[in-house]
């Protein structure tokens, strides 16, 4: 494996301990002529939380979106290099994005529940992928997903109400429930707490820690504290390149790069 732009004295402990889930190699992403990600290589471990940090516009979202090929929906966007999921190149021509995205869920910065009932929001992916055997099964999946997203107690009496009628934090947990209902292997979260108050944020962080038992989680965040609290691996992006990646403790206590240090101590960004 080559780590061209990254200075890595040793393989991070979390990568050594857990199986690699996603391995990116020499990834470049372009919007038209403009390059947003340059020669990026990273290994993301399974059953752990990896955090992407970095100043605004450095390409965190862009890279995150290329992991589940959401970038396909942007006509000008082009990806080169290789991103492997369990060893399978996701940009291979034989890959069906529909299948891919069923395995790699995503939660967005602003909660975006569908204009449907709470139940239907969670049932959406289950229905389109045909994952439930029957109605009872569907109800079970919806209930379980809401429970795992720790939203069940708050909404169990109003499953038929509109998902858009919930509070911001509840909506975000609904979106998480919606994502885990299809039983993905990876969950990508792009600043999932930036629209939420501290209490709602704390609940989501708790949830993330719970979920990492079963999922590979990648989270983009602007909060250094959040990255330190929830993640095992931290990757620092700057101007489209990956500057440093390592165990979260190591990156925050003993950054190897000056730029990383400047960023986490708040000197720029």
């Amino acid at each position: 494996m080559s780590f061209k732009t990254v200075f890595t004295p040793a393989i991070p402990a979390i990568i050594a301990a857990n199986a690699p889930k996603i391995v990116a190699q020499d990834v470049n992403v372009y919007y038209g002529e403009k390059s947003a990600i340059k020669e990026l290589s990273i290994t993301i471990p399974d059953k752990a939380v990896s955090a992407f940090i970095g100043p605004s516009g450095c390409g965190k979202s862009t890279f995150l979106r290329s992991i589940n090929r959401m970038n396909d929906t942007i006509p000008s966007c082009r990806v080169t290099g290789k991103i492997a999921f369990d060893g399978m190149d996701i940009y291979d021509r034989a890959v069906d994005v529909v299948e891919l995205r069923a395995r790699i869920g995503m939660v967005f910065q602003k909660p975006n529940p569908f204009p449907k009932s709470i139940f239907e929001n969670v049932a959406y992916g289950v229905r389109i992928h045909g994952l439930a055997k029957d109605k009872v099964d569907l109800e079970r999946i919806v209930t379980e997903s809401l429970q795992r997203a720790s939203l069940w107690d708050e909404v169990k009496d109003r499953l038929a109400h509109a998902g858009t009628g919930l509070s911001g934090g509840q909506q975000q947990r609904l979106c998480i429930a919606r994502a885990i209902a299809v039983n993905p292997e990876v969950i990508l979260m792009d600043e999932p707490c930036s629209a939420l108050d501290p209490i709602a944020t704390a609940r989501i962080e708790e949830l993330i820690s719970d979920l990492k038992q079963n999922f590979c989680i990648v989270i983009v965040t602007h909060s250094m504290q959040q990255a330190a609290r929830v993640s095992d691996l931290t990757a620092f992006f700057h101007l489209g390149t990956l500057v440093e990646v390592g165990d979260t403790d190591a990156v925050f206590t003993n950054p190897q790069e000056k730029r990383t240090q400047d960023y986490i101590t708040g000197r720029f960004g």
Binding site: F85, D86, G87, M88, I90, D92, A94, V95, D96, V98, E99, L100, R103, I128, H129, G130
Partner: peptide, 15 residues
Amino acid sequence: MPNFTSSPRTLKRNR
């Protein structure tokens, strides 16, 4: 290795 090729159901959906 995982398989991301279209399942019969996905083929139907794509159709």
